[in-house]
């Protein structure tokens, strides 16, 4: 598969590869075949007009770290769950906190916050002045509301 990779060096000496999200899966597939057998971390950074998704890949043979960066303007990125098992929880965490939709994820739901939470807390435009209350309903499921009387 032909794709264009921009390689650079970060300030602390990590090797960084920039790729557009259409070719992310192909690149990571090739990197995995090259020996990067573990996905260490998925982070998202909200730059207001775009969200940067940063993957830290780990090679267990030479114990090296490689960074793959891609960005999205409509909060959609292909999921890496088909390549790495650890992407499952990592992508759920980023979906929970940043609202990035990982297309192709088998079970994309919130992991740390209860279902029904309004907004994505780590986004820069998240409204911190509004308190949300979590309560348990008769079925034993979490229920989120803005009304303090409804909560505690």
């Amino acid at each position: 598969m032909v794709y264009e990779v921009k390689e650079e060096q970060s300030k602390d000496g990590r090797k960084v590869m920039r790729i557009d999200r259409e070719h992310l899966l192909d690149l990571v597939k090739d990197l995995k075949a090259d020996g990067y057998d573990s996905l260490s971390l998925i982070s998202c950074v909200d730059f207001r007009d775009r969200i940067e998704v940063v993957y830290h890949l780990f090679n267990s043979k030479n114990e090296d770290i490689l960074v793959v960066k891609t960005e999205t303007r409509d909060s959609k990125v292909p999921s890496l769950t088909s390549l790495y098992e650890s992407a499952n929880w990592d992508e759920r965490e980023q979906y929970d906190m940043m609202g990035v939709e990982f297309t192709g994820h088998p079970n994309l739901k919130r992991i740390l916050l209860p279902e029904g939470w309004v907004g994505y807390p780590l986004r820069k435009d998240y409204d911190l002045s509004k308190t949300q209350y979590v309560n348990m309903d008769d079925e034993g499921e979490d229920r989120v509301s803005f009304d303090p009387g409804d909560g505690w």
Binding site: S10, S40, S43, V45, V67, L122
Partner: peptide
């Protein structure tokens, strides 16, 4: 700039991904 540091905590590889934007507060801590 963005920096990633991995250290060995008792549980395993503890990594901190830190992004700064030139202000006195971190832009993103992961």
């Amino acid at each position: 700039g963005d920096f990633y540091a991995r250290t060995e905590s008792p549980k395993g590889e503890f990594g901190v991904y830190l992004v700064g934007d030139g202000t006195v507060k971190p832009y993103r801590v992961h």
